[in-house]
Design a protein around this nucleic acid. Structure first.
Length: 566
RNA sequence: CGGUGAUUAGCGCAGCUUGGUAGCGCACUUGGUUUGGGUCCAAGGGGUCGCAAGUUCGAAUCUUGCAUCACCGACCA
């Protein structure tokens, strides 16, 4: 590719609309352009990267035995009514009508279509298991698209669906996909982690997310510092503190705490550590008999909403009590609630339950209790894990302590079970001639998101530093003052032809630009090797090679250049 | 959906308070200059100031409504 015949489209200035670094660099390097909120055009350079990611994903899926299909982006509403998701999915599902006023949706995912396909095409257990995948554009009408292609409304996704007679078989394929995903992210050259995940609205049993580690990630991932354990913080178990609870040594005492509401204020006012206080949150209960439930946490801990709403007593989705409910149940405002004599069910976090002589609200305006002790002062309560783990907690795997890092979710694998197969009547005849509903797995990878995630993880002040497997070009030929030097021009042309013949993805910067402009552009775009050809080194038949990742410059004989790409 | 802010040339911005012929930098075009890290000089092209209505002799500027975009939050895979 010659730059003179190519659409480079680099920008010197950062567009104001871009917030995160990957979005800024994708605009500046000429990878994408915004069309509307959450919708992007992929420019040639961006598309080359996207295709390389896609190809690695495709190859590894095929190696793992999955078969590629392509399903339509527009899907009939009937299918969604059949699965029940026409009602369940909500406004993220973009619905539209055709000229005959028939209803359709833009596919945010393809469970319905694939399950229908399998229901029609497969009728015998002998044809199982089967694992089909596609790489297709999805549309989700996100409430708030942001961060460029990281959370766009339209995005490219690899989605795979496997069908099985029984759970054992599903688990085998699930593990197979888990391994394939690890190979994919290794080949992509990204620092990633598989993490235990919440199954969320899709439901099912086991689930893993694959995260690319980057400070700008939207998810918190909890790791063990001594084992492979990693879990989304939503799902990371906070173990009960070891040992028995200390005995009570203090009397229950009521303290006036005028205008003291937050935990910080309480701790400061009473000169104690926040760890010695508890906070009491009132949330909506799951049924009418117990409209309000109290959740009690140690003062320095945060509520884990996923864990809380998974409790049978708590309404899902988790909803905090209204101000009126707080007044009527606790008789005070939110800053003074406590579990002592609270006439509603009380659920206490494991760590809070381990405290003795602690401080909590007294259910009287501007008043707290000190010297509070479980069982002596509060009899009716149950203990559960309802907090987020924090750094330094013992890892639930039993080895090491928790470390927390940010991650970008780029893959997610689920064991779906029978949900869709049942709804869409997808079954086969078994060996004994009985009809049996199939059990399913589904496996997603955000292909376009990977491009952004790779940049988040690999950049410097000059631009993108692509892992070589997904760099848009493997090398750039940068001739110095080619217009004046026939020798430089000839050498550049020869090297270009040679690299092209060898199948190296090379871009030849044949613009009549100053060297600084060319260097800056190729460093912004992130090409791994700059092959700099100048009069300076031609007498010795050498060119300069600059490594984008390490920044190292070295001289190399021209006839040795091919060795960089073997 | 709630809060906040923005919308003036392809991009980044000024001008608005105090209404009076629309500007700057980058990019683009032409000529010259320079040529191993975003040269310098000169000349040029490009804008119904987001849309609509109102006030006014006169609106980018004041008023109202709408739209779009972004950020924070809630929501969500």
């Amino acid at each position: 590719m010659r730059t003179s015949q190519y659409l480079l489209s680099t920008l010197k200035e950062t567009p104001a609309s871009a917030e995160v670094i990957s979005h800024q660099l994708m605009l500046r390097a000429g990878l994408v352009r915004n069309v509307a909120s959450g919708l992007y055009t992929w420019l040639p350079t961006g598309l080359k990267v996207l295709r390389k990611v896609e190809q690695i994903v495709r190859e590894e899926m095929e190696k793992a035995g999955a078969i590629e299909v392509l399903m339509p982006m527009v899907q009939p509403a009937d299918l969604w009514e059949e699965s029940g998701r026409w009602e369940d999915y909500g406004p993220e599902l973009l619905r539209l009508n055709d000229r005959h006023n028939r209803s359709f949706v833009l596919g945010p995912t393809h469970e319905e279509v694939i399950t229908k396909l399998i229901a029609n095409e497969i009728s015998s257990y002998k044809q199982l298991p089967v694992n089909l995948f596609q790489i297709q554009t999805k549309f989700r009408d996100e409430i708030r698209p942001r961060f460029g292609v990281m959370r766009g409304r339209e995005f490219l996704m690899k989605d795979a669906y496997s069908f099985h007679l029984d759970e054992t078989c599903l688990k085998t394929t699930y593990q197979n996909m888990y391994n394939a995903y690890c190979r994919i992210f290794e080949r992509l050259g990204l620092d990633y982690r598989p993490v235990i995940a919440d199954t969320g609205s899709i439901g099912g049993d086991a689930s893993h997310e694959f995260h690319v580690l980057a400070d700008s990630g939207e998810d918190d991932i909890a790791f063990s510092d001594q084992s492979d354990f990693a879990a989304n913080i939503e799902k990371a178990e906070a173990l009960a503190p070891k040992g028995t609870r200390p005995s009570a040594t203090q009397e229950l005492t009521q303290v006036a705490t005028p205008n003291v509401k937050t935990i910080e204020e309480v701790a400061t006012f009473l000169s104690v550590d926040a760890q010695q206080t508890v906070k009491t949150l009132l949330v909506q209960g799951a049924n009418e008999n117990t409209p309000v439930i109290a959740l009690v946490l140690r003062g320095d801990h945060q509520l884990n909403e996923i864990k809380a709403e998974n409790l049978s007593e708590v309404a899902s989705p988790l909803t905090f009590a209204t101000d009126e409910q707080i007044q009527t149940t606790a008789n005070c405002n939110a800053g003074s609630i406590g579990p002592v004599n609270l006439p509603i069910p009380v659920i206490v976090d494991r760590s809070a339950a381990h405290l003795a002589d602690f401080i909590c609200g007294a259910n009287v305006h501007d008043t707290h209790f000190s010297g509070v002790n479980w069982d002596r002062d509060i009899q009716n309560y149950q203990v559960a894990d309802i907090r987020n783990v924090v750094e330094g907690d013992p890892s639930p795997c039993g080895q090491g302590n928790i470390v927390i890092k940010r991650g970008i979710e780029v893959g997610h694998i689920f064991q779906l079970g029978e949900k869709y197969a049942q709804a869409m009547n997808c079954g086969v005849l078994t060996e004994t001639g009985k009809n049996q509903t199939l059990t399913m797995g589904c496996y997603g990878i955000g292909v376009s998101r990977i491009v952004a995630a790779a940049i988040e993880q690999n950049h410097d002040k000059y631009g993108i530093k692509w892992p070589s497997a997904i760099a848009p070009f493997q090398a750039a030929i940068v001739p110095m003052n080619m217009a004046k030097s026939a020798r430089v021009k000839e050498t550049a042309e020869q090297l270009y032809a040679q690299l092209q013949r060898a199948g190296v993805d090379v871009i030849f910067d044949d613009r009549k630009e100053r060297p600084g402009v060319m260097f800056a552009d190729h460093e912004l775009i992130g090409t791994p090797f700059l092959l700099i050809i100048g009069e300076r080194n031609l007498d010795t038949q050498e060119i300069e090679v600059k490594n984008r990742i390490t920044g190292e410059k070295s001289l190399m004989k021209i006839d040795q250049v091919m060795s960089l790409f073997q």
